[in-house]
């Protein structure tokens, strides 16, 4: 159950990012109400933390095939459609994941070592975008994994 642990840890990390973002905002609200101060950069910190959590969740979504899908045909006629459409969806998902990796990696590469930073916390964009690209690399791995599962399932059935 290696994959189970890996995806569980990823989800926990993603969820912790959500909690961290919420915690920073609440701390800011408390400081503001009782000490009249604010937490520097709190909006950007919250946004980046929660955004990172969302990005981390996407690869698991690919691997577990829990993407939002309108299953109509395979519900009407599972025998005819279930495996064929499952493979079709997995192939398209893999292509899309690969394109997104290309897009984000290229963008990270173009900003790598450049002077651009975020507005408030002054974090280097090159590093942040590299992190984004890495999560999309993980998404591609997840999509490939799901494709292999789908193909095996179809072979076993054939």
């Amino acid at each position: 159950m290696k994959r189970g642990i890996l995806s569980h840890v990823t989800l926990l990390l993603a969820g912790s990012c959500f909690l961290l973002g919420a915690g920073a905002t609440v701390w800011d609200v408390i400081l503001r109400s009782f000490a009249g101060r604010n937490l520097p950069g709190v909006i950007e910190f919250t946004t980046l933390s929660i955004g990172f959590g969302a990005l981390l969740s996407i690869p698991v979504c690919y691997a577990r095939d829990q993407k939002v899908t309108a299953r109509l045909l395979s519900e009407l006629s599972p025998r005819l459609f279930k495996h064929a459409l499952g493979i079709l969806g997995a192939v398209f998902s893999t292509v899309f994941a690969a394109m997104m990796l290309w897009i984000t990696a290229q963008f990270a590469h173009s900003k790598w070592g450049g002077p651009e930073t975020t507005q408030d916390l002054m974090l280097p964009m090159g590093i942040l975008l590299t992190v984004v690209a890495l999560t999309f690399a993980a998404s591609l791995a997840g999509a490939l994994y799901n494709l292999v599962i789908k193909l095996r399932g179809a072979l076993r059935n054939a």
């Binding site: 450049g114 002077p115 651009e116 930073t117 975020t118 507005q119 002054m122």
Partner: peptide, 8 residues
């Protein structure tokens, strides 16, 4: 100035 650092 929206892209901090690009147009110093």
């Amino acid at each position: 100035t929206y892209t901090a650092g690009l147009f110093p």
